[in-house]
């Protein structure tokens, strides 16, 4: 059954969310989410690369020999990552410095190669763009959630504005590496918990 175009776009939000469901692209999700703005910046950069590479890959899908398709996809992705890198270094140097080596590492983000191989190389250009956009938005959403949890708990601020009074003592561990592991572990646990609950409900409705 073919999805409608709207479903193609929205499936990346929850149903096939790259981080929550497919557990792909974890490195940037953990490394750069010390604050909300960093998370969103990384999300937007990855979304741009995802949409562009999906577009090009679905355009050239007819001419690429099957045996060397992966190297070709990687070159396409690396080209767009280089563009992002140069634009970011030129127009948002603070963000570029904060994201550091994780900008060039977008190349090896499994989500992007994964969507090129699993989706864009089999579907039309329009659908591939929608798929890339949806997946990118889903990725950005999770990054924003992790980033804001860590910034609120670890720094007591959101987007740089203090949330609590001066008596608030920040949980420093949350903006250090261990905090990232705890937040993603608990988030994935919550997702699994809601899945299990829905399954149980389905089973019960069948029994009754």
């Amino acid at each position: 059954m073919k999805r409608s175009l709207v479903q193609e776009f929205t499936k990346g939000f929850i149903d096939e969310n790259p981080i929550a469901r497919l557990v792909l692209g974890l490195c940037p999700a953990l490394a750069v989410t010390t604050s909300l703005i960093n998370g969103i910046g990384m999300g937007i950069a990855a979304t741009f690369v995802l949409v562009c590479s999906n577009t090009i890959v679905s355009m050239i899908k007819g001419v690429v020999p099957k045996k060397i398709r992966i190297p070709i996809f990687i070159v396409v992705i690396a080209t767009f990552v280089t563009i992002v890198e140069m634009v970011m270094a030129g127009f948002a140097p603070v963000l570029y410095k904060a994201l550091g080596i994780y900008v060039p590492l977008i190349v090896v983000n499994c989500i992007i190669l994964g969507r090129a191989e699993a989706f864009a190389s089999k579907n039309s250009v329009g659908r591939s763009i929608l798929d890339g956009l949806g997946m990118g938005v889903g990725f950005t959403m999770i990054l924003a959630v992790i980033g804001s949890i860590r910034e609120i708990l670890g720094d007591g601020k959101i987007l740089g504005f203090p949330l609590f009074g001066p008596d608030f003592e920040p949980v420093l561990i949350m903006i250090l590496p261990p905090g990232a592991f705890f937040v993603i572990g608990i988030l994935l646990g919550i997702f699994k918990w809601s899945d299990l609950r829905q399954e149980k409900k389905k089973l019960q409705s069948i029994v009754h």
Binding site: I173, P178, A180, F181, F182, I184, G185, L188, K192
Partner: peptide, 18 residues
């Protein structure tokens, strides 16, 4: 049940990171 597999591995990794 809901922490089995990957979630608990992440929490373990967090403890190791500490």
């Amino acid at each position: 049940e809901s922490l089995k597999g990957v979630p608990i591995a992440f929490i373990m990794a967090g403890l190791m990171a500490i």
